[in-house]
C-alpha cells in the first residue's frame, strides 16, 4: 500500500503538469501572432512532460517496490523530436510569410 505523502506528491505533480498544459493551450488560443503562438506549446512538452514522467516513476516504483524507470524515456524522446518539428515549422512559417509579403526579417544569409 502506498504511504499517504507519496500519493500527495504524485497528485500534486499530475495537477501541476495539467495546469501547464492548460496554460499552453490558453496561450495558443490568445496570442496574436503566429510566432508568439509557437512558444506556449513548449510548456507542455518540457515541464508538463517532466512532471508526468516523475509522477509515473514515483508511482510505479512504490507500487512494484523496485525502481521502474521507463518514464524517463518520454522526456528524452520529446526533447529529441519536438525541436525537429518546431524548427521545421518555424522555417515553413518564415518561408510562407516572406512569400506572402508579411512583415518578417529577410533571409540572414547574404547571397554571393
Amino acid at each position: 500500500m502506498m504511504p499517504i505523502w507519496m500519493e500527495i506528491v504524485v497528485g500534486v505533480l499530475l495537477v501541476l503538469s495539467s495546469l501547464f498544459a492548460l496554460i499552453g493551450a490558453l496561450g495558443l488560443l490568445r496570442m496574436k501572432d503566429f510566432f508568439q503562438r509557437m512558444h506556449p506549446p513548449a510548456l507542455a512538452s518540457t515541464l508538463g512532460a517532466w512532471c508526468v514522467a516523475l509522477a509515473s516513476i514515483i508511482y510505479f516504483s512504490v507500487l512494484k517496490s523496485g525502481p521502474v524507470l521507463h518514464g524517463w524515456l518520454i522526456p528524452i524522446l520529446l526533447s529529441i523530436t519536438v525541436p525537429v518539428t518546431t524548427v521545421l515549422l518555424a522555417r515553413t512559417a518564415l518561408f510562407r510569410k516572406r512569400m506572402a509579403g508579411d512583415d518578417v526579417p529577410a533571409e540572414v544569409s547574404s547571397r554571393r
Partner: peptide, 16 residues
Amino acid sequence: SMITTVVPGTIWSELA
C-alpha cells in the same frame, strides 16, 4: 538548436 528549442521562450528560426 535542441537547447534553444527545448527552453521555452526562444525558437531557433533560421541559420545563415
